[in-house]
Write a protein that binds this DNA or RNA. Structure first.
Lengths: 151, 151
DNA sequence: ATACGTGCAAATACTTTGCAGGCTT
DNA sequence: AAGCCTGCAAAGTATTTGCACGTAT
């Protein structure tokens, strides 16, 4: 059993345990979230979902994402300009790097990250809820193709 | 001469050198940005500006902030839910901690932060543009007052 | 039957844009 | 005179909300 299947089972279980119903819409949303590792935004999830259930509305996705976020079964990566992206494959908080050209959003391994929360808590006295590290840049591929539009 | 005055001079100089005009609106915006250390959002800047120039519109603030951001004379702290906040007092990228109760946004000193950009660049090959570390939590004061609303 | 979920549409919030008029150099 | 800047209003985008209907237990 691969991680996608595990994630699907885990999310389904969590939803049901918390008293939520596993509707056809939600099943598909869970499938999408457990499989995709490209951190889709609501609109992208909507596009896929609409193919299988054409009557679905975006509101359903937003509502389900909110539930999953509260259950910590999906990680929300917040943007101010573009819409949020969601990681259901690996919902444990981790830093990301975002290419501002091709919009790709990738995981980033930083061994300092996991200690940060506790360190900040100690240093500031804040009760830390979430720690968002988001890096914007240009990925190696886009660096090649963007040489011509440099001034 | 204190840092606020320095910042005001520096921002004025940068604007003029880059060919922008120093209009009355912009003078006041620069004053606000150079003095306030609470990381105001556009609306808060607007409220102050409106007192001195009642006909000012929010668009003027957004446009001026965009210019200053490009000149790197103001640091934009991005949110997805609330509006952006701006640091003109210390425009060099640095991490922040945000209280989700009282909305206070404070600077955070993390000695690891300054090395991160280069480390990420090496590790990923990305050309790093900006590194945003934003921590959400509850500040010590709000922890005291919020005990009663805990479930 | 009761409560939850869905889909639609309207509302909200923040920010950007187009444009006409004004001011500065 | 030319160009930049402002203020207004409209448009744009992302997300949330209210509500009536449907469905599952």
């Amino acid at each position: 059993m691969n991680n996608s299947s595990n994630r699907f089972e885990q999310m389904s279980y969590k939803l049901k345990s918390a008293g939520y119903k596993l509707t056809p819409q939600r099943v598909i949303i869970l499938q999408i979230l457990s499989q995709r590792q490209d951190h889709p935004n609501p609109d992208s999830i909507y596009a896929t979902l609409k193919k299988q259930l054409p009557t679905t509305s975006p509101a359903t996705i937003y509502k389900t994402l909110a539930v999953l976020k509260n259950l910590k079964e999906v990680l929300e990566i917040q943007y101010s300009k573009e819409s949020n992206r969601y990681d259901g494959y690996n919902p444990i908080p981790h830093p990301h790097i975002h290419c501002i050209k091709c919009k790709k959003l990738s995981d980033l391994n930083l061994f300092v990250f996991d200690q940060l929360s506790e360190e900040v808590q100690k240093q500031t006295g804040y009760q830390v809820h979430s720690l968002n590290l988001l890096i914007d840049g240009i990925c190696p591929e886009c660096q090649l193709t963007s040489q011509e539009d440099d001034k």
